[in-house]
Every structure is written in C-alpha cells, then in structure tokens.
Design a protein around this nucleic acid. Structure first.
Lengths: 192, 192
DNA sequence: GTCTATATTATGATAGAC
DNA sequence: GTCTATCATAATATAGAC
C-alpha cells in the first residue's frame, strides 16, 4: 500500500471516528486502533491530529465550491439552479456521508489557519446561494421573502439528510429527492 | 448567593462554554475561570462534568415534552397544531438559546444513563410530531408525503434558527415567524 | 513503515486548610 | 464556599530500534 492510499484510509477512518465521538472526543490511539496500527505509526502519514480535520473539511469545501461554480454558469431559471444545488447536496450526502457530517459538526475545531479558509469558503458559498435566491425573487420565480431566511431553510433541510441517510436506504434516494424538492418549492400544506 | 442559584449560574455558564468549544473541548478549569472561581470549587455545587451536560439536555427535553403534551390536547386543526409547535420552537430558540444549541450539538456525549433517557424523550417527541403530520395528511390538510420526511424538514428548518439567532435580532422575531411559517406551509416557489 | 518507550502537557476530580 | 496542592490518568507527539 503506497503512501497516498494509506493516508486516505486514515482520513476516511478518522471521518467515521470524528463523526461518532466528535473531534475533541476522538483520540489518536482510538484512530490508530481502528486503522490497525499503533498511534505512533500514524505520524508517518500525517503531521498532526488537526491536519486530519483540515483535510476532511477542505475536501468537502472544494466539492461544494466546484459545484457552485458550475451551477452559477448554467443558462437556466433560478428555480432550476436551486434544484441543481439541492440535487448536489443530496448526492454528496450519499457519497461522502461521514466527511460531510464531520464538516458540518466539527468545523469549529479547525485550527486557526484552516478555520480562516473554511469560513471564507462558507461565506462565499452562502453569498452565491443567496444571490440565486434573490435573483429568483426578483424575477418572480420565487415568493417574496428574505433571501437569507430562504437559504437557511433550504440548506438546513438538506443538512438534515446527513442524519437520515443510511446505506440501506439507498434505494429510496429518488423518492426523497422528489419529495424534498416538492416540499421546499411547494410547501407542505394542501390547496397551497 | 444560595446553592441553587449558584448552581444555575454554573450550568448557564457551562452552556455558553459547551456551545462554543463543545462538551469534550471544554475543561473544568475553563468553566471555573468563566464563573470566577477555581476549578476545585465547582465540585461544591456539582458532582461531575457530565452532570452539567445532563442537566442542560434534560431541562430542554422537559420544555419540549410539556409543550408537546399541551399541543396534543388542543382542539384544533393539524395545521394549527403544527403552527403551535413551530411557534414554540422559535420561542425556545430565543429564550434558551445556548442550552438548546448545546442539546442539539452535544447530546451524543451524554453518559449512558442520561443518554437512554434523552433518546427516549427524542423518539417520543418525534413520534408525536409525526402523528400530527400524518393526521394532517390523512384529513387532507397537508399534501401527500412521507410523514417522517416532512417532520425532518420542518424540524431541521427550525433547528437552523439556533445559528441564525442573535440577541440583537430580537426585533425581527415576528418577521421570521411569519416568513418561516409561510415557507414551510406554502413553499418558496411563486404561483405554487 | 511499524514498533516500543517515553517526554510533555492537560485533564477530571479529591483532600484538607481556612 | 472557596482556596492551594495534588493525585491519577490520558492526551498528542517524538526518538530511535528494527
């Protein structure tokens, strides 16, 4: 096993551990045990515990940034852009389940320099998201509302999927995507 | 200052600290410093660190359980029951901001016995919430959808308020309540 | 690349004086 | 009820043999 894939294995194992016990609640001994080596051996692949958290959060941040840049360039309605983002959130929740859970729950524990970069990413993502919502409100596709509150509502509904998702529920993914989109766009009340 | 209010002061200070640094990331020395005493002195008021987390989570659980029991007995439509719950979530997010944030973020670190009780509370609350949603779907007040997914969407949107809320935003509370209710019930898309 | 051994620091909690 | 002093344990990380 070469350096790179061993490191990836450690990061993925760390993601599972951090998710379960939290970053500060996880120990290097615990992680090493889950990887199947001694704690000291971890340091042949990584420099520190906080590097693990940084790698996880930055990886997720890149995925979202790339997708946002793609969606921004789409030549489609605001609603379709939002749907594209919703679909991506669902996709990433399924494919990078542990890492996204860790990013959402543990980013507060990033070291100072990683934290700065992460907050910059998050603010930019939210700015872009809000801009799409505002565009939709202005052109009449969306109901009049505070763009920030709309963004928070949509993002938080999507975030919840991280708790809901389990691999054995994979087959229902399409059902969720359709129902969730419907709920966010049309609400839950009948004769709306 | 008598025992009770001193203990309350410690718990409230712990809530602020746990929220910021997480339960495992917070130290008794740190807490003591914020209270203005030495770490050893804390143990004159509490028995252990995990007692602090338990008290916070159980306190919040009681508030929600009481409200749910009240709402269940209401002689009103399913939608009005949901609105009552939404209003309560918003109210509690404002009045018990730090404690609810800690409960949501740190309940995983409860000790075994408190954890058992907390999960029982949470499951019961979700069962009751789902039952109201199902009732609304069955009687035609709500659109056809999976009750669990509806519950998750509503609860997660409300949970997000904990991050959004800041004391200086207090004046906008009514705006939020109205817009959030609208969004959840009617969705965000125009000519829905 | 992994191991054993260990340095260093920090943690939750207690003992006992005042 | 608070303090100082301290115990016992556990944490991240390093050194050096293999």
């Amino acid at each position: 096993m070469n350096q790179r894939s061993r490191k990836d294995e450690i990061i993925q194992t760390a993601a599972i551990l951090f998710r379960e016990k939290g970053y500060t609640g996880s120990t290097m001994r615990d992680l090493a045990h889950n990887v199947g080596i001694e704690a000291a051996s971890l340091y042949n692949h990584i420099n520190s515990k906080d590097e693990l958290l940084s790698e996880i959060c930055i990886h997720i941040a890149h995925l979202f940034t790339n997708e946002m840049n793609r969606v921004k360039k789409l030549n489609s309605s605001s609603v379709d852009k939002l749907i594209a983002l919703i679909d991506f959130h669902i996709l990433i929740t399924i494919d990078h389940n542990d890492m996204i859970a860790v990013t959402n729950q543990e980013w507060r524990h990033l070291n100072d320099s990683s934290m700065t970069g992460f907050i910059k990413f998050r603010d930019q993502y939210e700015q872009n998201f809000k801009a799409i919502v505002k565009e939709g409100i202005d052109n009449g596709e969306l109901l009049q509302a505070d763009p920030e509150l709309v963004m928070f509502t949509v993002l938080s509904s999507l975030r919840w999927l991280q708790f809901w998702y389990r691999p054995d529920r994979k087959l229902e993914t399409d059902t969720i995507r359709i129902q969730l989109k419907n709920m966010l766009l049309k609400g839950i009340q009948a004769h709306g």
